[in-house]
């Protein structure tokens, strides 16, 4: 599984974002949206967020609805390091 290229890169980030979403889904929706965005802003290094936006910008396939709802609140990293 782990060296399966499918699981690495974007898929791994989608998986991680969905894990956070599952926790935040037990909160009221708005709180969950804010919580998810804040969590990713606080703990995800810009290159991880950049990859997440690549997924979001391509339609967000595989992401749970809460991640999509939170996308506006997730900080888009600067394009260059």
């Amino acid at each position: 599984m782990l060296h399966d290229p499918k699981h690495s890169g974007h898929e791994k980030l989608v998986y991680m974002a969905n894990q956070i979403a599952k926790f935040m889904e037990s909160k009221p929706h708005d709180e969950g949206v804010a919580g998810l965005a804040a969590h990713i802003n606080d703990f995800w290094e810009p290159r991880m967020r950049r990859h997440l936006f690549e997924v979001l910008d391509a339609g967000g396939q595989g992401l749970r609805p809460l991640v999509l709802d939170a996308a506006q609140k997730i900080k888009r990293p600067a394009q260059t390091a």
Binding site: D42, W44, E45, R47, M48
Partner: peptide, 16 residues
């Protein structure tokens, strides 16, 4: 002012 990489993220970034 941006958070850095955690160990598993460092390893993912290295592979990338």
């Amino acid at each position: 002012s941006e958070p850095g990489l955690r160990i598993p993220n460092m390893l993912d970034a290295a592979v990338e």
